[in-house]
Structures are given as structure tokens and as C-alpha cells.
Amino acid sequence: MRVLERAWYSGACWPRVLLPLEYLFVTLAKRQRAKKQAKAWQAPVPVIVVGNISVGGTGKTPVVVALITMLRQAGYNPGVVSRGYGAKPPYVPYRVTADCTAQVGGDEPTMIVQRTDVPLIIDPDRPAACRALLESAQCDVIISDDGLQHYALQRDIEIAVVDSQRGLGNQHCLPVGPLREPAQRLAECDFIIINGQGAFNYPEAARMVLVASKLAPLQAELLPVSVAEWAGKSVHGVAGIGNPERFFLALEALGLKVIRHSFPDHHPYRDEDIAFNDGLPVIMTEKDAVKCRALKLPESTYYLPVDAQFDNGFEAHLLKRLTQKISERANHG
């Protein structure tokens, strides 16, 4: 898989031998989409879907966290539904709580709840998750985390997130390229968010930057550290996300000298994965931290909380679109 992934983003020509499989993939995906949309379930409250059209991480989770904050500030009571990739709950639909382990609730859902205390339900069946959410919490807006291709759930607003460094790769669908749907799918979305300052661009897209100021400790006896205090310091960077290099570059932009340790997205960490035995601090992503708290940690282990900031008037445009959708629902009701 790693070889194929490098080919998608390097301009290699050899994946084109898989073009017949891409045609089959796209044809079947279109049929599935039409079939599911014909019977799609509509929630009684607006649904905002945050997703992407490429495989791998693009930065959806910071967008979801930012949406929760901006909706609350605007007077809404949001809830979240998620597939819960890698989660092993005792049953579904399952309500993730702040004291859940990542093994039960999934790393991203658990992180979202620990950060925001939002009501969040995991279930691969998105309509079932929405129904359970509305039965267990007073929500007037639902955010679907990573649900762009889950067409069994009707949506009022679609937000697609694209990594600015990787973009759309070679712009081919699986397995020739990294796309789950053709690149033209972006034109159907209400909003495009480009994560980072890389070369990828898209008309009228909002640009997102992730801002960090402090390092948060995983060990209770340690205190948070200002990033500025560690400028020039050598650290071990640990990332098990879709694009680990993005995290390492962010650490270097903060003035740190990073020894890179990349792991697959949603990696189940073991003690030996982060046992470097040289006394240097370890810094990981917030998503990784929820999986590592129970491990035997190096003496100084921290994670980097980040907050999303958007340009191009994204927040105002989103809230305006949501108001319009609520009005349309009322008029059709």
C-alpha cells in the first residue's frame, strides 16, 4: 500500500496499468450512490457532513472540533455522529464519553469528546447513529464526521477537506489514484477547506491553518510547556495519522528539531513504539495521545493541541448557509 501511495503523489506512470479497475470502481461507486440516495434517511434537524474525496487523513478532525465551537457560540446545540473507525464498543449505536478508551470509542471520536464534551454516537450506520443521538441528547444540528460517501444519510451542508501538500494526487480514483470519487465531486460540495499553506488551490476555497501555543503533558505530574520555551530543542515526533509529515513540519515550524517516527493511521501503540531511551522529550499528536495514556511512557511525553483558524469568511458563510437551510426546512415542513 505504501508503494502505491507514493506513486499516487509522485507522478509515477505505472499505476495506469490499473485503469480498467478504476473504471470498474467508479461505475460501481456511482451505482451505489444512486441506490443509497434513493432511500436516504433525512434527520429532523440539519446535518453538516465533514469529509474528503481522497483516502488518508486530510485534517477533518480539527474542522469538526472548530465547527462544534462556532456552532455553540452561535447558539446551537450540536451533536456528532461517526463511524468510529477501529473502535470496539460493546454494542452500536454507542455513546462515546470522555472516560472511554480509544480501543472502545475510537481514537478520533474519543479525542473529540475529551476536547469538547460534545454528545457523540458511533455506528457504521449513520442514520441509526443520528437517531440514537437525537434520542439521548438535545441537539439541533448534527455534524457527521467523515461521512461524505455515506449517502444513506441526507445532508444539508457538505464540507470537503483537502490536504494542501498532497492535493488530489494524480487526480485518479482508486486504485490508479487516491480518490474515492472523481475530482468533479468537489464542485458539488457547499464548502472546500484546504488544510495548510501548500501549493494546492481551489476556487473560493477557505484556507485552514492549525495553531498551537502549548505542549500538553500526558503524565499528570508534568505541567504544560510553552512551545517558545523549547525552540531549538531536539525532540522525538510521533505521529500515527494520515499524513505524518504534516505534523513533523508543524513541529519544525515551531522551532523544534524533530526526530521522525511515523506510524500508520489509527496505529494501536505498544510500549516499545515510543521507548527511545535517550532522555529526549516525546511529542505526539492529540489523536495519538488518547491511545497512549495507559502505556509506559518516556519521562517527558507531550502532545500538541491545535486549533483550526479559517480565512475567506468561512465561519460567517457557514452560519449563513445553515440559517438558509433551516428556513428552507421550515417552509417545506
Rank of each mutant, 00 (worst) to 15 (best):
G106Q: 09
P127L: 08
G79S: 06
V63T: 03
S136V: 11
T69S: 15
A66L: 01
T116Q: 04
P78S: 07
L120F: 08
V96L: 09
P119C: 14
D140E: 11
E108Y: 04
M111D: 06
R95I: 11
A66Y: 03
R115P: 00
L120D: 00
Q114P: 15
D107N: 14
P127Y: 06
I143G: 04
G86Q: 04
Y91E: 05
R95A: 12
P90I: 09
V96G: 05
Q103K: 14
G105Q: 06
P124Y: 07
A66Q: 10
A66E: 04
G86V: 12
Q103D: 10
D99I: 13
I121V: 13
K88E: 15
R95K: 11
P93H: 00
L148I: 10
L134R: 12
P124A: 07
Q73W: 00
V92G: 01
P78Q: 07
D125C: 10
L67T: 10
R83C: 04
D140F: 09
Y94R: 09
A132Q: 01
V80M: 03
E135Q: 15
I121D: 01
L148E: 15
Y76H: 15
P89C: 06
I142N: 03
P90L: 13
A132N: 01
P78D: 12
I122W: 00
D123N: 14
I143L: 15
G147R: 06
V63C: 03
A87M: 03
M70E: 07
A87W: 06
D145E: 05
C130D: 04
L67K: 05
Q149K: 08
I142E: 11
R115I: 00
T116F: 00
R95S: 08
G84C: 05
I122H: 00
M111P: 15
R72H: 12
V63I: 00
Q103N: 06
D123G: 02
V92D: 02
V64N: 10
I142K: 07
Q138V: 09
G147Q: 08
G84Y: 06
I112G: 01
H150N: 15
D117W: 06
A66H: 05
T110M: 08
V92A: 10
P109M: 02
R83G: 05
L67C: 13
V65N: 08
P93M: 01
I68D: 00
T69R: 14
Y91S: 10
P62D: 04
P89M: 03
Q73I: 01
D125K: 04
E108V: 01
R72Y: 01
V80W: 08
T101V: 14
L67I: 05
T101K: 12
Q138W: 12
V64F: 11
Q103R: 15
G105S: 02
